[in-house]
Write a protein that binds this DNA or RNA. Structure first.
Lengths: 339, 339
DNA sequence: GGGAAGACTGTGAGCGTTAACACGACCTCT
DNA sequence: AGAGGTCGTGTTAACGCTCACAGTCTTCCC
């Protein structure tokens, strides 16, 4: 048993003692302060890895008031969209030297989002990203702790906070116009669940194109983003096969469900019915037929939201709220054909 | 300007002053200490929400040495498997009153994992979950900071750390046996990339069943988990359509690629070739044909890993290392048929 | 060669909380 | 009635770091 067998991890003072300097000099070395003699610096460094010292960021955060941690509130990070967005956020944050603390809500409502934000605030995050695709969740942003930098992703373009999102309306326009240009009389729509902002945006874009072209606007079928709900919608549409020649489906997973239903009912895609999806999940290219869809650049959304948030944090001032829109991209594949 | 307009958030002392008690009593109220008079408690509570006080967990962590934060190191949380696992981990952690700090590696190698663990350790996490599906990543667990509770998910059953994983070998056995029972002479295999433990486990189970049954063991085709790589493998297998009647594909995404290639080449599934996948992603049920596959309960894996980790953390002692195995489940659908 | 302007390093205080201990009031038991 | 508890509360000292300030030691210039 040597004298030095305490299992307590070494602290700055231990390093200082070993290097024969003051704790403050160790701090300076760690923070790349310019005024440290090169020889002193190496001596400190040597002491650091001799002891296996790691600085305690908790203590540091206590005095600096900055944890270099960002909070992320999201919903069901199992889905491709949220998962990709959160991934983009995490990457961008880490590149900027920030950590990311995540809360994944099971159900998304105002109270839940508020709780999550509260926890995160206690934990001392420097800012918060809320992936709030539902109206009810977006509203929770109204009562953020005062002075807490925040940004909403895929949220509502209102009130007190900056928003970054893919232009859903434009995406839906792209999809619907494409179908009209192929000579279809009108376009049916299988939408996402009510209260989802993305679902609303896609309905809006779809309806706008149809009315602008003076076409009839069919009633929408409503799904819940799942392949199964698409399958059910597909069964109903197949029964109307004569009338329906083109469908814009609000996401690729539901589009897959449609494809399956149509296969079962002997409806040929794209010969009898054309389909356009939304998202461009990695699978879409290999559906039968490969799915024409609208690509969302989730990575870009994540990066842009971190940009906005960090600008807020680092300025220290509440900045004017921005609305950043990432353009969607039309991806032509094999599920659409001329009438 | 009143006297109380400092924008600095209130601290315990402010609450104490307002409630006419000492800061320590406020602390006791916050921590549900039994020995506080009911009347005092309510007075403190009133002061707390009058000031909008939130306790500072950073300061708390500094003195208690517990941050109630867990670190998670993962790889590409865009993929369904990792995303679901991380989701399960986060849910289980929060239910237990812990936060989760996530690092998603872009590339997975020993150095990267080590860096990530280092960052998390500095940040003061109480324990670390490493989702380490690759051999090289798993090895990084050898040099964890001393005394840091940790658990590996989908990792290697070796050395110094507990491991929770789905039984890959058993899953592959299930898939291969099913195909053999249908009367196929042998089963081909499209594997995941080398160095992935899951890929290795699935090869092992597949080979074991074939050799036990005295069947020829065909050369494996190797993919990278992506639908595209499955598509390429599918093209090669289609060219051998006479010889090949059954294929076990190491994940559902690649299986989708195979399906697409076979469709293009006019090979009928399951009439000419039977296919079994692995994972049971939400889409699989709606492939054409619906995919027979092996389901992994990622949520259970996440929960179990948090169980193990928290037991380690809360005991304070290094516990004996466990190896928890979550059983896979065979899911029969339409992509397999008797020879 | 005296003084000013750097370069480099040390000292002390304080961040907001909990832990340890101390203390008075009140009870219970012999 | 006095000893010994328990309850409720306050006081003080950490936790490990950075900040502000106060040195000391060079260097350089007139």
């Amino acid at each position: 048993m040597g004298p030095n067998v305490d299992r307590r991890p070494p602290v700055m003072a231990d390093v200082a003692r070993l290097a024969g300097v003051s704790h403050q000099t160790v701090s300076r070395v760690l923070n790349d302060h310019p005024n440290v003699r090169a020889e002193t610096r190496t001596r400190v460094m040597r002491a650091i890895d001799q002891l296996g010292y790691r600085r305690n960021l908790v203590a540091r955060a206590l005095v600096t008031k900055h944890s270099r941690t960002l909070g992320v509130v999201s919903f069901d990070t199992t889905l491709y969209g949220p998962a990709s967005t959160v991934y983009g956020i995490e990457q961008a944050a880490r590149d900027a030297g920030y950590f990311v603390s995540i809360v994944s809500l099971r159900t998304i409502d105002r109270a839940g989002v508020n709780d999550a934000i509260g926890y995160l605030a206690e934990q001392g995050v420097d800012g918060i990203v809320v992936v709030a695709p539902q109206r009810s969740a977006a509203r929770a942003l109204d009562d953020l702790p005062a002075g807490m930098p925040a940004v909403a992703v895929e949220g509502w373009h209102q009130g007190d906070v900056s928003v970054v999102s893919v232009d859903q309306v434009e995406g839906a326009r792209l999809a619907t116009s494409h179908l009209l240009e192929l000579g279809h009389e009108t376009v049916w729509h299988v939408s996402g669940p009510a209260d989802w902002l993305e679902a609303e945006g896609r309905i809006e874009g779809w309806r706008a194109v149809l009315t602008a072209a003076g076409r009839p606007v069919p009633a929408t079928l409503t799904g819940d983003w799942s392949p199964r709900s698409g399958y059910q919608a597909g069964k109903r549409l197949a029964a109307m096969a004569g009338d329906v020649t083109a469908v814009f489906v609000a996401n690729d997973q539901m589009a897959l469900g449609l494809l399956r239903a149509f296969t079962e009912e002997g409806v040929k895609v794209p010969e009898q019915i054309s389909i356009v999806g939304f998202d461009d999940i990695p699978e879409s290219e290999f559906f039968s037929p490969p799915l024409t869809t609208i690509r969302q650049d989730f990575g870009a959304v994540g990066r842009r939201s971190i940009d906005v948030l960090l600008r807020q944090i680092e300025s220290g001032e509440p900045l004017p709220h921005e609305r950043l829109v990432v353009p969607p991209q039309f991806v032509l594949r094999g599920s659409t054909a001329a009438r």
